[in-house]
């Protein structure tokens, strides 16, 4: 039964791959259909799909909001001395 399932359907490994591939390149029609079929039947991958989208929002927010002034300012005097000694 498992073997038959593997032929007809994507594995979770492949499905999770396509979920993330989709955010970079367009999936083919076949890939889209197979992915939809898999996620409709697999709770784990359905959750992964949702969470991958959540991650996109979180990461975009986390990485875009920071400009030079918004990140923690660290003092590194040793570095200054090192650079100056090389000038």
């Amino acid at each position: 039964m498992q073997k038959l399932m593997n032929i007809l359907m994507l594995s979770c490994k492949k499905a999770s791959e396509l979920i993330d591939k989709k955010s970079v390149v367009k999936l083919s029609l076949k890939e889209n259909v197979m992915l939809k079929m898999h996620t409709s039947m697999c709770d784990g991958c359905k959750a992964y799909q949702k969470q991958s989208k959540i991650l996109d929002v979180l990461l975009k927010h986390h990485l875009q909001k920071a400009d030079e002034t918004q990140i923690p300012q660290i003092i590194n005097n040793r570095l200054k001395e090192q650079i100056i000694s090389k000038l």
Binding site: N6, C12, C45, A47, H61
Partner: peptide
């Protein structure tokens, strides 16, 4: 990472299968 998360049939291992997260993303930002 693939060997860690997926079994020999390329399905999620039980302990690594994604679970539902409580819907609180708005507050997380």
């Amino acid at each position: 990472i693939f060997e860690t998360l997926f079994d020999s049939n390329d399905q999620w291992k039980d302990e690594h299968r994604p679970q539902w997260w409580a819907d609180e993303t708005g507050h997380l930002l």
